[in-house]
Design a protein around this nucleic acid. Sequence first.
DNA 1: ACCTGAACACCGTTCAAGT
DNA 2: ACCTGAACACCGTTCAAGT
Lengths: 180, 180
Amino acid sequence: MARNKRHLEPKVKKEEIELVAMALLKEKGYDNTSMAEIARSAGVAANTIYWYFENKDHVLIAVLNRVVSHAMEEVITQREQPLRTRVLKLIAQVESSGSLMTDVHARVRHSPKVQAWHDQFHGMVEQLAVAELVNAGVGPDEAQLDAKLLIYVIEGLLAHPHKLQEREQIIDQALKRIFA
Amino acid sequence: MARNKRHLEPKVKKEEIELVAMALLKEKGYDNTSMAEIARSAGVAANTIYWYFENKDHVLIAVLNRVVSHAMEEVITQREQPLRTRVLKLIAQVESSGSLMTDVHARVRHSPKVQAWHDQFHGMVEQLAVAELVNAGVGPDEAQLDAKLLIYVIEGLLAHPHKLQEREQIIDQALKRIFA
DNA sequence: ACCTGAACACCGTTCAAGT
DNA sequence: ACCTGAACACCGTTCAAGT
């Protein structure tokens, strides 16, 4: 056999795989989503994915890029909101991508590519955070350190389940301490 | 065949498995250490581990308990040191256990037992941190929140590589902001 | 009670072959 | 260029059987 199921959409196939992978990875996480499952959901043979992606981690990275660029769009939308509101919105946003961020941290040790993606992503987020803090009145040299504090607190909130109210309290406390 | 390799030490076997597993998990992480490898290093058949442990996550938990109780002993030793010194020592200590803490976060979603272990551990650490902060002069209601901030910052430092100096700067900044 | 060999289901990945 | 069936090596876990 070896029959192309769809000679119709030649380049949409990759996108389709990414979209399906994104949904599955968000919902069930990296480890609980098999390549076979992604393939089945995309309507291709399991090994077909390997024509488009080097391996499973590269699928992850493609999904991460989608998630991040979508999150960035949302962030831009919120431009005139106060910092507190934006941070909380961002957390809610990232949280909707399930355990993806935890998965990234777990895969960093297995895959240099994921490692590279993570480092670059972290750099970008830090830059944004520094700009935010400077803009809000923190001294430029302190802003660097405070940005890390804020990011780690956000990561902590993402990694551990919290009630909405608790989450707000923690963010408020962090901002209070930074801006005291 | 099915011959006991060692009828000599009947109860030390479990401890031996735990020690071997601890070394391997610290060095190579959860995912990169197979049950077969642990068994081989312990000098038993692969499935023998399942007589002592329900599954791989239970091996993890046994190892975590060893690591934590050892860390606690160290912490007690440092009783009269200033908070800053103790926090830095603690980080260095936990860091020497490799990616174990990241592994815990990754396994939390797969195993309810690991989840339970994590929650209980987090509760204990929070209690300790609150006591530390109150003792250092933070108001009791604020201490609860500040403890979380501090823990998340420490977790962030553990999850991401940092130069020693950078690490100290970040901890100093965190303590500075909390005690301002 | 303690331990084993053999097997099972599953997984990520590869390869030679098809169109 | 794009896709597949079949196979490979590996993994955690189970089971019936041995002492």
